[in-house]
Simulated scan of single mutants.
Amino acid sequence: MAKKVAISVGHSILKNGNCTSAGGCVNEYAYNKKLAPLIKKYLERAGWKADVIRCPEKKFAAKTEEKSYKLPLINKGTYDLAVELHLNASDGTGHGAEVYYKTETGKVYAQRVQKKLAGIFQDRGAKKDDHLYFLNGTKPPAILVESFFCDNKNDYKKGKDLEKVAKLIAEGIFGGKITKKEAAAEKPPYTAVKKSSGKEAIKWLQKKLNACYTGKLPDLSVDGIWGPKTMAMLRAYWKQLGWKKGSYAGKKTCTALFKDRKK
């Protein structure tokens, strides 16, 4: 059975517009908001299941509400591992990567991720900590990743390659190399989606059309109902790719959507 991981983005943006994270050369929250989906991508490439958990923006009045939102989602999700993403900060001179854990299982994951990150950042080690709410409050084993110092120019220069950092963290979690060959073996969940298809298939089609169609039509409601708006966007997507019209999304269309093809 595939392992399942929750990838939590540390911090949030409060009602008043203030961000609860550190800043410097890059904002900690903004960076990890982009990093989390990339880690998910690589883990799914390796056969894992992954969910990104991020606090809703401009909803909370105080940062203390972050844990009340995230922890219940993680604890009811039957996850094998929970990962929270952070960046460190000091006075601009601190640098390097460190990963925190509490349990022995967490230690295994923390050491693997730390070893990977130490390939490009200074190795500050995998460290046990009993005082972090994320490590104390999650039912599954958990790790907290401080990828680098967001107020250090040299660290940020290395960390700007989000794909590279994401792949390193994902490989540390997975415990091995994640190759292009594995990615090529991936297949779309559906080979055809039509009016008579089930709701989940149509929802998948609607969601992928919203992500891949770049024209002026408004986003579809992801409701699993094959209506005229779904058909209109499907036809607009074919036109976007230079394809002839059809009456349903066949294998060619499903593959293009699965690969997030826009041209």
Score class of each variant (00 low, 15 high):
Asp80Leu: 07
Lys63Trp: 10
Lys58Gln: 14
Gly77Thr: 06
Ala62Phe: 14
Ile74Trp: 01
Lys67Ser: 11
Asp80Cys: 08
Ser68Pro: 00
Leu81Asp: 10
Glu65Leu: 04
Lys63Ala: 13
Ala61Leu: 11
Lys70Cys: 10
Ala62Val: 11
Lys63Cys: 01
Ala50Cys: 15
Pro56Ile: 09
Cys55Ser: 13
Glu65Trp: 08
Leu81Gln: 03
Lys70Trp: 06
Ala62Thr: 13
Leu73Trp: 03
Leu73Thr: 09
Trp48His: 13
Val52Ser: 05
Thr78Cys: 12
Glu65Val: 00
Tyr69Ser: 03
Thr78Ser: 14
Ile74Ala: 11
Ile53Pro: 03
Lys76Gln: 14
Ala62Tyr: 15
Lys63Arg: 07
Gly47Glu: 05
Gly77Ile: 09
Tyr69Ala: 01
Asn75Ser: 10
Tyr79Gln: 05
Gly47Phe: 02
Ala82Gly: 14
Lys63Asp: 11
Glu57Ile: 03
Gly47Lys: 10
Tyr79Arg: 07
Lys49Arg: 10
Asp80Tyr: 04
Leu81Ala: 10
Glu66His: 05
Ile74Gly: 11
Lys76Phe: 01
Glu65Met: 07
Pro72Met: 04
Tyr79Met: 10
Phe60Ile: 06
Trp48Thr: 13
Val52Pro: 06
Ala50Trp: 00
Lys59Glu: 13
Ser68Gly: 08
Leu81Phe: 06
Glu65Gly: 00
Glu44Phe: 02
Ala46Trp: 01
Leu81Tyr: 05
Thr78Leu: 05
Thr78Trp: 04
Cys55Tyr: 08
Tyr69Pro: 00
Thr64Met: 04
Ala50Asp: 10
Lys63Leu: 07
Gly47Thr: 08
Lys76Glu: 09
Gly47Asn: 10
Tyr79Ser: 13
Leu73Gly: 01
Gly47Ile: 08
Lys70Tyr: 05
Leu73His: 01
Leu71Trp: 05
Asp51Arg: 03
Lys67Gln: 04
Trp48Cys: 14
Gly47Ala: 10
Lys70Leu: 15
Ile74Gln: 01
Ala82Leu: 01
Ala46Tyr: 04
Ile53Gly: 10
Lys59Cys: 07
Tyr79Trp: 03
Arg54Trp: 00
Ser68Ile: 02
Ile53Cys: 09
Cys55Phe: 05
Tyr79Glu: 09
Glu66Gln: 06
Lys59Met: 14
Glu44Asp: 09
Ala62Leu: 04
Arg45Thr: 15
Lys49His: 12
Glu65Arg: 13
Ala82Arg: 02
Pro56Cys: 02
Asn75Arg: 03
Leu71Tyr: 03
Asp51Glu: 13
Arg54Gln: 15
Leu81Arg: 06
Thr64Glu: 14
Arg45Asn: 15
Glu44Ile: 12
Lys76Arg: 15
Pro56Thr: 08
Tyr69Phe: 15
Val52Phe: 00
Phe60Arg: 01
Arg54Asp: 11
Arg45Pro: 00
Arg54Lys: 12
Arg54His: 02
Arg45Tyr: 08
Glu57Phe: 01
Val52Arg: 04
Asp51Gly: 04
Gly77Lys: 05
Gly77Trp: 07
Asp51Pro: 00
Glu65Lys: 08
